[in-house]
Structure formats: structure tokens, C-alpha cells
Design a protein around this nucleic acid. Structure first.
Lengths: 175, 175
DNA sequence: ACCTGATGATCAGTATACTGACTAACTATC
DNA sequence: GATAGTTAGTCAGTATACTGATCATCAGGT
């Protein structure tokens, strides 16, 4: 361990100090959330996106794929793949819309809803753990402010999810 | 437009209502942030991760790759690739550590720092836009609570970034 | 010096999520 | 009912970011 004048694990306080910027914090926040719930979901062969898809479908049964994707901020192709997977697993059903045969009507199967209910307490626990550092009163405040930020800026949302954009346009060879 | 008993764009209020859960909000929050700054960074052939790398390097010059990755919550391989890219573009320098020849000492070049400074006002503007829905006082509150949540939960952070976990173990054929 | 275990970085392989082109189906207009 | 323009969904191709294996180096014990 080189322990001269090098960098060690910065203390939590140091991290708190340095990251008092809303942007990086938003990233960390999401990352921490993912860490918590991924663990809770792993035993069910689920991940956060899949689970939120189940929840969304529970709340808006009969929604079509495009709108579902929009609701979750996931692109149409990816939603298609996810729906495909969940369909294969018998967790959701996909029917052709009666009035618009292009669209696919989605809803939870009883198996899917059972799984959702089975997972729910684990999610609530993870959520509680995330909020644990706040007092109940602070939680309300925090949620309200967070909601306002998100809703007010919804139109500026990145459509494309979390992947980095392509940076090197083509560069056929050398650096 | 099928406008009978189908789903239209839910109103912002409806979204606010439905998403009063901290987890999904954290995702939206980050997504909104990405949307805002990606736009600001695109002219510079940068993306949020790259820019935050430049900033981190400005604040901790001489850091090595592994620690840089940890600081940003990015895995070692990905950091290596990013560093490679930025090195090629002449924005950072990479030297072998004098005491530990395994490690690579990273720092901004003057070109890299100039780019960082050029981008900074755009980032600040994006940040301001993100925070705009809050009053100055609320901003302070929000940042404090957010910081507390993140710092308290740092140990539960997902190491692996934002990609979904592998779900289908192998499935060599039919579902 | 030699061996063992740990660590920083890279390489090869793979999984995920995108973009763009495409098909099918809807609406509007003639 | 034919044509044009639009939209839901899928397919093929590609880019990004991971996992695991490997190499080089370091630290400790003998």
C-alpha cells in the first residue's frame, strides 16, 4: 500500500463535501437505489426495469407498448424485448388491440401479478432503507421537492436512457 | 386517434401522483439531468461521464485509474476505455506511477483543462435549469437531504453502473 | 533470491440497449 | 377505394459497458 502522499479512500464527509452538486448527486442517488433493489430482486430473476414494468402494468392495465415505454422512459425497441421476455415467462399477456391492430394490449397475468405481490415487500424494504437517513418529516419534504424537479423538467428528459452517446463519429483507423 | 376509453398522455399532475415513490423518481431525476446536460455537452463531443471525469481529474490530479473509477462509480475496464479515449484526444495525460509501476497517474492536460473551463458555464446553466423549480431556500434543503441519503447509503451502491443484470442464465433454445 | 498472495491495468468475449430501415395498419383526403 | 402521410411494432446492425482471464508489479515471509 503506497501510503505516502497518495489518495486513500476519501472519507464519507469528503465525498459529501465534494459532491454537493446536484447532477453528480442524481447519478449517485440512482446508483445507490439500483444497488439496493437489485439485490432484493435477484432471487426472482428480476431487475429494476422489469419490476417497474410489472408495476406500471398493474397500474395501467391495457396500456400499449409505446406508451408503456414512454411511461418508463425506455425506448420502443427495448420495451419490445422486455415485453417479449416477460411474455415468454408467462408474466404478462399481449393481445392485439381490437380497434387498432397495430397495437399490442398489455396486461399482467395472474402469475405476473402474484410475482409482483411477492416482490413488493422486498421493494418496500429497500425503499425504506434508502429513506432511512431522513426523518419522516424530511421524507415528505424531500419527496415533494424531488417530484417538483422531475415533473417540471419532464419535457427535457433524455429519451434514450442511460447509455453514453456515440462520441467518435467514424474514425476509420488511426487515433 | 382512438380516443375512447384508451390512455392518452397522462397529465403532469397524474404523473406526479403516480410516481410519488422514491425509487422511480430517482430514475427520472437522473434521466432528466442527463437530458439537460447531454444537450449542453454534445457540441463538445462530450457526454456526462466524460465531463465528470474531467472534473474529477481537476479536483484530484494524480489519481490512478482504479480510484478514479471508484470515485465516479464506473468499473475499471470502462474507466480504462474512457481514459484511453481522452488520452488520444490529448485532454488528459497518463504516466506510470514512480513508486508503483502498475499504476497510471492521471491528470488533465492544459488542453483538457481549457475544455473543462469552456464547458463549465454550460453545465452550470443546465444545473440551474434543473433546480429552477425550487426556491433558493428549497435548493439548500433539497441538496442537504439528497446528500444525506446518498452518503449514508454509499456502501450499498451498485458497483456495476446502470446496465441490467443478466436474467436468462443460458437458455439454449426454446423458452 | 524465491515463492505466495494481492493489486493495477488490459484483453477477449459477451450482454444490453440503442439507431435506422422496414412492415403492417391506421387516418385523412380525394 | 386508392393514395399519401403517420404511427405501433419488429428486425438487423452497431455501440457501450460489463465479466472473467491474464499480465505485470508489488509486498510479505521464508
Amino acid at each position: 500500500m503506497r501510503n505516502d502522499e497518495e489518495y486513500e479512500q476519501p472519507t464519507k464527509a469528503a465525498i459529501a463535501q465534494r459532491h454537493r452538486k446536484i447532477g453528480p448527486l442524481s447519478r449517485r442517488f440512482f446508483q445507490v437505489y439500483l444497488g439496493l433493489i437489485s439485490e432484493a430482486l435477484a432471487p426472482f430473476e428480476m431487475d429494476p426495469s422489469f419490476y417497474s414494468l410489472l408495476v406500471e402494468l398493474h397500474e395501467r392495465p391495457g396500456i400499449d407498448q409505446r406508451r408503456l415505454g414512454e411511461a418508463l422512459g425506455i425506448d420502443r425497441t427495448t420495451i419490445g424485448q422486455m415485453v417479449d421476455e416477460l411474455d415468454h415467462r408467462g408474466l404478462i399477456s399481449r393481445k392485439v388491440h381490437a380497434q387498432d391492430r397495430r397495437a399490442r394490449i398489455l396486461s399482467l397475468t395472474s402469475k405476473g401479478d402474484a410475482l409482483r405481490l411477492q416482490i413488493r415487500p422486498h421493494m418496500l424494504r429497500a425503499q425504506a432503507q434508502l429513506e432511512a437517513p431522513l426523518t419522516p418529516e424530511e421524507r415528505g419534504t424531500f419527496l415533494e421537492l424531488l417530484t417538483r424537479i422531475v415533473v417540471s423538467n419532464l419535457d427535457k428528459e433524455s429519451t434514450g436512457g442511460f447509455r453514453r452517446r456515440k462520441l467518435r463519429p467514424k474514425e476509420k483507423g488511426g487515433g
